[in-house]
Design a protein around this nucleic acid. Structure first.
Length: 274
DNA sequence: CCCCAGGTCGTCA
DNA sequence: TGACGACATGGG
């Protein structure tokens, strides 16, 4: 068990559409990479238990991106656009998640909703991932690369990904061609990474930017979904934001991805809380 | 019955 | 380039 300071919004972070393998009852449970994290919130700390204690502090600091100075970034965003001040309410982090998991998960995410994305990803883990028993409960890790490469398109029926099944197969083919496909992306610029990803049929700019934000922690990449679109069209009082999209980097700078994530959360929470 | 969901593809101007 | 319907599936 480790304790970390409660200086960010845990619930807001894991329920902000970047994570699909969490649960909440008396505590938060998340399956991350090779372990299960169980998090208990106290008045001023998060107490974190895990099925694997090895390097737990380092693991947690990495996953929740605790080393990055978000305050500094937020101040910069507000300086560039004062209206950001009213939407940076939640003190969210951008999680550093598993590349392979993000690669598959965000292909599933297209034209889909969070509940069904969670269902499909969890089912994929249940069918092909390693089983873990922790405190008398059963969990499944995200499947290994080797396991995923064994999957046939018919196997995806049960996961209920619909028309996205062939896209997942295309993504796996890219790994079949180059076993280090996802690792090799790391050395490229964000723009070149995007180019590589959208070569795969089934990955467009939106999915690519999610993979880059949440799998590679590239905060200069920014997914514009329907929620962010709604926010932006009201914020800048325009109907067609296609042109504006290309200007966002100039407005918000190298952390534009975080800015858009705040917009996403803000707009979506308005809806959810209605 | 409709519309929508952290979109992308194929097609047609 | 840009617009537009199709695509699986389930919820509202």
């Amino acid at each position: 068990m480790i304790e970390i300071s409660k200086n960010f919004d845990l619930k807001g972070t894991i329920y902000s559409g970047q994570c699909f393998r969490m649960n909440q009852n008396d505590c938060f449970t998340i399956v991350v990479k090779d372990r299960v994290l169980k998090i208990i919130e106290t008045s001023n700390k998060y107490k974190i238990y895990s099925s694997k204690e090895e390097n737990l502090r380092e693991f947690v600091e990495n996953y929740f991106d605790l080393k990055r100075d978000y305050k500094k970034i937020n101040d910069e965003l507000i300086k560039r656009d004062p209206s950001m001040k009213s939407i940076i309410l939640y003190n969210h982090k951008i999680l550093r998640q598993d590349k392979l998991e993000m690669y598959i998960t965000y292909i599933i995410s297209q034209n889909n909703n969070v509940k069904r994305i969670s269902y499909s990803v969890n089912k994929l883990c249940e069918l092909f991932g390693e089983k873990i028993i922790y405190e008398n409960n059963i969990y499944y890790l995200f499947p290994s690369k080797e396991k995923l490469l064994e999957i046939k398109i018919e196997d995806l029926k049960e996961i209920k990904v619909g028309f996205r099944d062939k896209y997942i197969m295309n993504a796996l083919d890219a790994i079949r061609e180059n076993n280090d496909f996802l690792e090799d992306l790391e050395s490229l610029s964000t723009i070149d990474m995007t180019k590589k990803l959208v070569e795969i049929k089934g990955i467009g700019p939106k999915v690519a930017s999610c993979i880059l934000m949440f799998g590679y922690n590239r905060l200069d990449s920014y997914p514009i979904d329907t929620w962010a679109k709604k926010y932006l069209s009201e914020r800048f009082n325009i109907k067609n934001i296609n042109k504006l999209q290309k200007e966002l980097y100039k407005i918000y700078g190298e952390y534009v991805g975080l800015a858009v994530q705040y917009m996403f959360n803000y707009q979506r929470n308005i809806k959810v809380n209605k």
